[in-house]
Amino acid sequence: MTMSNQNTNEALLLEYLTFRLGEETYGLDIMAVKEIRGYEKGTKLANVPEFVLGVVNLRGDIVPIVDLRIRFNVGKPIYDEFTIVIMLNINERFVGIVVDEVCDVIKVDSETIKPAPQFGAVFDMEYLEGLVTVEDIMVILVNIQALVTSDTFALIDKNNEEQERPQ
């Protein structure tokens, strides 16, 4: 009986990669992270929103790079050797997000996650999983899949449906 309770408790632990945008700390599901790398200037595309910096070739995959600092008007977008890109795998498609700083990987008991308030957050409420306090720091947990597949970003198909090509 103790063993099954222990397994149940372990199942409630969630892991998040934390990062900073401006003055705030955010977390995203670690399972969405493919890799963390330095910024490289991509190929700029025409008629894309300002926050889409372009695309890069990541070992044969063409990956759009999005600067969350520009999209949500937080932090100053500086591109140098310290600029960080988190490469994400969402619905088996890749997207890179530029952040100010990558902090740590945290383990969170799902029962400690509090609902986000209806105001004062950079992200729309539908993209937030909630808030959690870790070592006196409030971490805003982002539903990165919902954010990246949203109409706002329109980078990855929500349904991940492959369109058939005419033969």
Rank of each mutant, 00 (worst) to 15 (best):
M1P: 10
T2C: 03
T2V: 12
N5C: 00
Q6S: 09
N7A: 14
T8S: 09
N9C: 02
L14V: 05
T18D: 01
F19S: 05
R20M: 11
R20L: 03
T25E: 13
G27P: 04
D29N: 15
A32H: 15
K34R: 14
E35Q: 15
G38S: 13
G38T: 13
G38K: 12
T43I: 15
A46L: 14
E50S: 13
F51D: 10
V56S: 07
R59I: 04
D61S: 13
V66Q: 06
V66Y: 04
V66K: 05
D67M: 04
R69D: 05
I70C: 06
F72T: 02
N73D: 14
V74W: 04
P77V: 08
P77S: 09
D80I: 08
F82K: 14
I84M: 12
V85G: 04
V85T: 08
N89T: 11
I90L: 04
F94H: 14
V95S: 13
G96A: 10
G96C: 09
I97F: 04
V98M: 05
V98D: 04
V98C: 06
V99T: 02
E101F: 07
S110M: 12
S110Q: 12
E111Q: 13
K114G: 00
K114N: 08
G120P: 02
L128E: 03
L131P: 01
T133Y: 11
V134F: 11
I137V: 15
I140S: 07
T152E: 15
L155R: 06
I156A: 09
N159V: 06
E164F: 09
R165F: 09
R165W: 07
R165Y: 09
R165P: 00
Q167H: 05
